[in-house]
């Protein structure tokens, strides 16, 4: 294996596990489609940050994207409170913001390496050539640092406020009576989602970032009954999807991010069918055994 493969694989694994980790909370809070919305609208944040600072990447882009992510959840909530149905509010908000992002991108930033396809699929294959250099020392691909940084931040924040995140996801009304600032934690979590998404955006793009946000968490949700284990498993499933997807993509010479999403879907299908606790086949098997057992007793 070449060093380039290693970097791509590392980036892919980091993307998949960081998205899967924070995405698990979205799955539990029934906010999967809000995750979809955020990961589309961060494009507008990136483009606006670019138009303001005239440079791609860097802190400005992160701030722009994070603010846009928060703005998205805020607008959705506002429309919902104003009487619109929640799913309609999500649909209207993210398509509008994303369309604006695409148009601005084509109008003002068409000469930048951020084109519309990049927006959707990312360019993870080029990751090894975008090296972060600090004081003349090569520190490895920039993507590894940004995605890794976002993941680390997510881990630290979730670690610090784990019990609050758990309670706010399970029973927010009760959390409120205990004096826990539920709204604040909601926005903290949405900020983490935005940061993770924008870090992943460059590598796997908008749509497939959503795949990593939702699928590993959903898979882990089928495999365990404990939140801690679910978070761990979502990381494992993420890495597994990344490795499988990458191998598949290299073998058939197809889109890496597309193959990662397909692999994640494949792992989910396995869990859906064979999960010892809730998989379809073990459940059907158990039911049959119980039925035949009853027959024997009678």
């Amino acid at each position: 294996m070449m060093i380039e493969d290693f970097w791509v694989l590392l980036t892919a694994s980091l993307v998949a596990s960081s998205c899967g980790f924070i995405g698990s909370f979205l799955v539990l809070r029934k906010m999967a489609m809000v995750g979809d919305a955020i990961s589309h609208s961060v494009l507008l944040g990136i483009v606006l940050a670019f138009l303001l600072t005239q440079q791609l990447g860097g802190i400005a882009m992160f701030i722009g994207a994070a603010l846009m992510g928060l703005f998205t959840t805020f607008v959705i909530q506002l429309l919902h409170q104003g009487g619109a149905q929640e799913d309609a509010a999500i649909g209207v908000t993210f398509t509008g913001l994303f369309a604006l992002g695409v148009v601005l991108l084509s109008l003002y930033a068409s000469n930048v390496h951020l084109d519309t396809e990049h927006v959707l699929f990312g360019e993870i294959a080029y990751v090894p050539w975008d090296i972060l250099v600090w004081n003349g020392i090569e520190l490895g691909p920039r993507a590894v640092w940004t995605v890794g940084g976002a993941f680390l931040l997510t881990l630290v924040v979730t670690g610090l406020f784990f019990k609050e995140f758990k309670l706010c996801a399970f029973d927010p009304a009760y959390a409120l009576t205990l004096g826990i600032p539920v709204t604040l934690f909601h926005y903290v979590q949405m900020t983490l989602v935005s940061l993770t998404t924008v870090a992943a955006f460059d590598s796997v793009g908008a749509v497939l970032g959503v795949a990593m946000l939702i699928v590993p968490g959903a898979t882990a949700y089928l495999l365990t009954d404990k939140l801690e284990r679910m978070l761990l498993l979502s990381v494992v499933v993420g890495v597994l999807s990344a490795v499988l997807g990458y191998g598949f993509a290299v073998w058939l010479d197809v889109s890496i991010s597309g193959a990662m999403a397909s692999a994640a879907g494949f792992v989910f299908a396995l869990a859906f069918l064979f999960s010892p606790r809730s998989g379809i086949i073990p459940t059907a098997w158990r039911r049959r055994r119980v039925l035949s057992g009853d027959g024997a007793e009678a």
């Binding site: 996801a169 399970f170 029973d171 404990k226 939140l227 679910m230």
Partner: peptide, 9 residues
């Protein structure tokens, strides 16, 4: 008021 499928014991 809560989702009893939530992964906690």
């Amino acid at each position: 008021s809560v989702d009893w499928d939530f992964p906690v014991n």
